[in-house]
Simulated assay, not measured.
Amino acid sequence: MATNPSPDPKSNLWNLTAFYLRLYRQKRGLSGEAVGRIMSCSKATVSRIEIGETRLDGTQAKALDRAWDMDGLFSMLVWYAALGHDPQWFAQYVDLEQRAQFLKIFEAQTIPGLLQTEDYARALFITGDAPNAEDLIRERMARQQLLDQEPQPFMSVLLSQTVLEWPIGSPEIMRGQLARLLELSERTRVTIQVIPRTWETGAYPGLDGSFELLSGDQFGDVAYTESPEGGRLVSSPSEVRRFAIRYHRINAKALPEEPSRALIRKFMEDTT
C-alpha cells in the first residue's frame, strides 16, 4: 500500500472514515489488495480512499461492516459524512473538476463558472458582497485553464433559458458573456444546449436546482450540488445514479445544439 499519510481525522467526517479504514486494515494485517476484494474495487482505489482522494461509498462501507463485524460503524460514518457540511468541499470539488475527463453541467440560474467571462464573474461576486472578490475572480479564471489543456475534458452543458435572459452587470457584459458561450459551443469537445421556457417544456426536474456530474479514471463518478454558502459532493453510486437520471431527463427537454446556438445568438443581439 502507499505510504502517504492519512488525512487529518479531526478535519471532517470523510477524513475520519479514511483514517479508520487504514487503522482497521493495518490492525488486521491486510493488504490493500485483500481489502479491495472485500469492497469489490482495486488496490489503488483503497489507497486513494485511505489518503482522502476518493470517498468510501455506502456499498463499500456495508461490505466492510459485514466482513469485519463492525456493527455498522463504516456505514454510519458514511451516512453522517454525506449529511454534513464539509468545510473543505470547495477545494475537493475544484481538485476533481481539474482531474475530470467528462463533465456534465446543468445550470438553472447563472452561467457556469467554467464558462464565465471575467466581467460577468465580477458582476456576480460584487453583487454577492464578497470581501475578497478580486481573489475569487482570479481563482475562477484560473480554473478555466482546463478548457485549453490537452486533452481537453469533454463537457456537456445544459442551460435553462433563464440563464440567458437574466441581466447581469450591464448589456455590454451580457453580450460579451453570450458571445463567449457561442465561441465555446463551436469547440469539438464542448456541447451547450438550452432548455427553452415554453409550455411544451413545462415543469421539468431542473427546476429543483443546479448540479454537476464529474467523471475521471482516478476517482470514478461524483455528483456536485451547491447551495448558498456551501456545496455537497456526492460519491455514493446510488445517489450519483439519481443525479445522472435527472440529467438525462433534463437533456430530453433541451434544444439540439444548432437551435440552442440560435437562441443564444438571439438573446445576445436583443440585449440592449
Results as ranks from 00 to 15, higher is better:
residue 73 L to N: 07
residue 86 D to F: 07
residue 80 Y to S: 11
residue 33 E to G: 02
residue 148 D to F: 09
residue 145 Q to L: 06
residue 255 L to P: 14
residue 164 L to S: 06
residue 165 E to T: 03
residue 172 E to R: 00
residue 32 G to S: 01
residue 260 S to H: 11
residue 62 K to C: 13
residue 175 R to M: 02
residue 114 L to V: 00
residue 220 G to F: 05
residue 228 P to G: 04
residue 244 A to M: 10
residue 175 R to H: 01
residue 260 S to W: 04
residue 187 R to V: 06
residue 74 F to E: 09
residue 249 R to D: 14
residue 213 L to W: 11
residue 89 W to E: 05
residue 97 E to Q: 08
residue 267 F to R: 11
residue 128 G to N: 05
residue 129 D to Q: 15
residue 19 F to P: 10
residue 267 F to L: 13
residue 254 A to I: 05
residue 117 T to S: 13
residue 94 V to P: 12
residue 57 D to M: 09
residue 204 Y to A: 10
residue 21 L to W: 00
residue 182 L to K: 03
residue 134 E to C: 07
residue 88 Q to N: 14
residue 103 L to I: 13
residue 9 P to L: 08
residue 82 A to W: 05
residue 19 F to Q: 10
residue 47 S to E: 08
residue 78 V to C: 09
residue 25 R to C: 00
residue 173 I to C: 01
residue 138 R to D: 14
residue 66 R to Q: 13
residue 256 P to G: 09
residue 67 A to M: 03
residue 45 T to N: 12
residue 239 E to S: 14
residue 202 G to Q: 08
residue 111 I to K: 00
residue 14 W to T: 05
residue 187 R to H: 04
residue 13 L to Q: 12
residue 133 A to P: 04
residue 193 Q to H: 03
residue 253 K to W: 05
residue 36 G to M: 01
residue 263 L to K: 08
residue 168 I to V: 10
residue 253 K to T: 02
residue 171 P to R: 02
residue 69 D to R: 11
residue 50 E to R: 00
residue 187 R to L: 02
residue 229 E to Y: 08
residue 206 G to F: 03
residue 34 A to L: 03
residue 5 P to V: 01
residue 238 S to L: 13
residue 30 L to H: 01
residue 85 H to P: 08
residue 134 E to A: 13
residue 240 V to Q: 07
residue 243 F to Y: 15
residue 171 P to N: 00
residue 182 L to T: 06
residue 99 R to Y: 07
residue 168 I to R: 05
residue 17 T to C: 13
residue 51 I to W: 03
residue 102 F to Q: 15
residue 203 A to G: 09
residue 202 G to M: 09
residue 159 L to A: 05
residue 171 P to S: 01
residue 248 H to G: 15
residue 199 W to I: 13
residue 186 E to W: 08
residue 231 G to E: 05
residue 108 A to D: 13
residue 135 D to V: 15
residue 112 P to M: 08
residue 204 Y to N: 15
residue 211 F to V: 06
residue 192 I to C: 04
residue 265 R to D: 15
residue 44 A to N: 14
residue 60 Q to T: 04
residue 224 Y to K: 03
residue 174 M to S: 02
residue 65 D to T: 11
residue 145 Q to N: 09
residue 235 S to E: 08
residue 198 T to I: 14
residue 17 T to F: 06
residue 265 R to Q: 15
residue 186 E to R: 06
residue 1 M to N: 12
residue 68 W to T: 03
residue 2 A to Y: 13
residue 164 L to C: 07
residue 144 Q to E: 01
residue 180 R to N: 02
residue 175 R to Y: 02
